Amino acid sequence: MLSISTKVERIVTESPFLSEGLRRGLINLSELARQLQPQLQNDLWKPVGQAAVVMALRRVAGRLPDRDAQELVLAQQSGQLTARTDLVEFTFRRSDHIDDCHRQLLERAGTGHGLYLTVTRGSEEVVVICSRPFIGLVEQIFANERLLARLENLNAVTLQLTADSWRTPGIYHAILKKLAWDKVNLINLISTHTELTLLLEKEHTGAAFSVLSNMIAHKH
């Protein structure tokens, strides 16, 4: 049977937010222990005192590394961080005809040199994110589709990742966690094999760019 300490350590290590909070000393141990008591008693099949849980949390916090065990290494190349401005996001209800709209949009938009256009199809919704010059085209092609939301005055920051970044557990969490600590609100995420694009409100773009710039590892 698991001990209280072992079970507490397992709970903490399985939650990146608990691990980060304990490592930074941001969590009230007594309150966290009170919150964990019901789960621990249920899992361990015995009464668990709050003091014992607090002691176990202190031990776990003392063993957490001062920094992330694995540094996030981003692509070492020019253009690894790119910003795009003045974007608009449309969200449409998916219909039987919306795939035709998607194809027509890509055909008529052409290469759109220097402009941004992406379409994401979900099970119930379709999202179109585009540069402002494409707005009229999107409105025309999707005129008969049900518009669920329209967000304007957005910017995007694209981060270049290494080709093997998919092998790094929690790589997206590491990026999003740092943005969350700096209170950067994200509107949407778009990813490819080596690119992660963050869609943000204008006022958060500078902070996001700063956070991501600081994450880029510089080789000497």
Rank of each mutant, 00 (worst) to 15 (best):
K183C: 02
R84I: 11
I129S: 06
E107L: 12
E71L: 14
E201Y: 09
L87H: 02
H102W: 03
P169T: 05
L148N: 03
D182N: 14
G206R: 10
F209I: 15
V53L: 03
K219W: 11
V12H: 01
L26P: 01
R34D: 05
D68Y: 05
L196M: 11
N144F: 04
T6N: 08
P65Q: 12
R63G: 08
R10C: 06
I129G: 00
N214R: 13
L117V: 05
N188W: 04
V73F: 02
Q70N: 06
A83H: 06
S165V: 12
K202I: 03
R103S: 13
L72M: 14
V127S: 09
L2M: 07
L161H: 01
Q41I: 09
A69T: 11
R63S: 14
F134L: 08
L81Q: 09
E20T: 04
T120F: 08
H113D: 12
T192F: 07
A52N: 13
H204N: 12
R121A: 15
S213Q: 14
R23E: 05
Q160I: 08
M1E: 15
Q39P: 00
L81K: 06
I129N: 00
R93K: 14
L212M: 13
W166V: 08
Q104I: 07
I187L: 04
F209W: 13
L148V: 05
G79W: 03
Y172I: 10
P38K: 06
V54I: 13
D99H: 10
E31A: 15
I4A: 04
R58D: 06
R67D: 09
K178S: 05
L117T: 09
E107D: 13
P65I: 09
C101L: 08
L36D: 00
L179S: 00
P38D: 03
V54A: 02
Q41V: 10
G122E: 03
S30Y: 07
V73A: 09
T162L: 10
D43V: 11
R108H: 12
E145L: 01
Q76L: 08
P47T: 05
Q50D: 11
L176R: 03
L106F: 12
L105D: 02
L29C: 07
H204P: 00
R67H: 09
V119D: 06
L40N: 01
L105M: 08
K178T: 10
R167D: 15
R132T: 12
R67L: 10
T194R: 12
D99N: 11
D43W: 07
A51D: 08
R59A: 13
L154K: 08
L159H: 04
K7R: 13
Q160T: 13
I27Q: 01
Q41N: 03
D43Y: 05
V157S: 04
A174P: 03
V53Q: 05
L72I: 14
T168R: 13
T197L: 10
S210Q: 12
R150S: 05
A143K: 10
T168K: 10
